[in-house]
Nucleic acid binder design. Structure first.
Lengths: 183, 183
DNA sequence: TTGATAATGCACAAAGTGTTCGATATAATC
DNA sequence: GATTATATCGAACACTTTGTGCATTATCAA
């Protein structure tokens, strides 16, 4: 990929992210992104079809990076502990998010959090699908899976809104306790 | 309130709801609402400041109605069962949602589900704040509360997307089991 | 250096927004 | 039923935003 393209692309992402920290996605205009990124109008549309496409690509970029290890590491199926390595995976995930705090803060926190959740849960779903059902066998798997994913997404959102003050290990512990996966 | 006002107000709500079933909030124009509701442009702006205000008022209308009993009934503090009447409250809530299926479907299901969640969770939070901490005392109350509210909201959203096929009692049971509130 | 291509800036049509105002229709009151 | 109040209509308006087109300039890869 051309250096010029990479440069503008990252400038747009950065500007967009910065704006997302301050205001809601709906109230951000393309013009504002252009001004913030110092990029021409036609250049923007050469890269992204719409504002929605921009959000989609930003989320894909971020989550592909953050989840890369979690989704492909084989160390996940460690049956020595009862949670099958799930705690380790979640902890890693949280550390990666903390490392990429600058890149994710705008998307995750702020008024547009709901938009990010849609994408975030897609990735979490992929992660959880590898795991066996939790302790409760008397509940439809589809329902339980939805619960696990939704709860973790909510927990992470809460954690970020709280400025990531709780240590990742502690958050993972709390979460696993609440979903009954820790015994 | 003037009959004419009630008429247009409900016409706008109905039209908006219908549109929300098909497309995302962001992509719905005021003009479309006007056409669908058969209402003049100036009339719309006499009722609602913006499209966001319309959404807010619609959610307030719906949830005020659905939660009215849950939030004010004194029967909630029945300590005969371990869950302190929580199951009954949730069951009632789900029945009310089912009764108002026509009014809520557009807002709840479809592409704009995230928008509804924000308001829904506000009401759920009020409902849960009356209740004591769950079994786990080793978790920050703020975190646990967020978990309870978030999980229920996700469960209900899943239930609606699944066309409310699971009986309310069963959903309440599953949920209470998953959050460890049933023992 | 040279050919390719990305970015720029400007102009443009099209769509959407929110407001104004006189005319009309409909409700509430006597 | 006549009167008064007011909600709605509809058309016009200025304004913002959007997405596209195109000639010009700058930058990259070889």
């Amino acid at each position: 990929m051309d250096r010029r393209q990479l440069k503008t692309r990252s400038a747009i992402f950065q500007a967009f992210n910065k704006l997302l920290e301050k205001k809601h996605f709906n109230n951000i205009t393309v013009q504002e992104i252009l001004d913030e990124a110092n990029v021409g109008r036609s250049t923007f549309y050469a890269h992204f079809e719409t504002k929605d496409a921009l959000l989609r690509e930003l989320c894909t970029d971020i989550f592909d990076h953050i989840f890369s290890q979690e989704l492909h590491s084989e160390s996940s199926h460690d049956f020595s502990s009862s949670n099958h390595g799930l705690k380790e995976k979640i902890t890693h995930l949280l550390y990666h998010m903390k490392d990429n705090k600058g890149n994710v803060q705008g998307v995750l926190s702020g008024e547009s959090g709901e938009l990010f959740m849609r994408y975030f849960k897609e990735y979490l779903m992929k992660m959880f699908e590898q795991y066996p059902q939790s302790i409760r066998q008397d509940i439809p798997r589809e329902f339980a899976l939805n619960h696990l994913v939704g709860s973790l997404a909510e927990a992470v959102k809460w954690w970020i809104a709280d400025r990531m003050e709780m240590p990742p290990e502690e958050l993972a512990d709390c979460y696993l306790k609440l979903i009954g996966y820790d015994s």
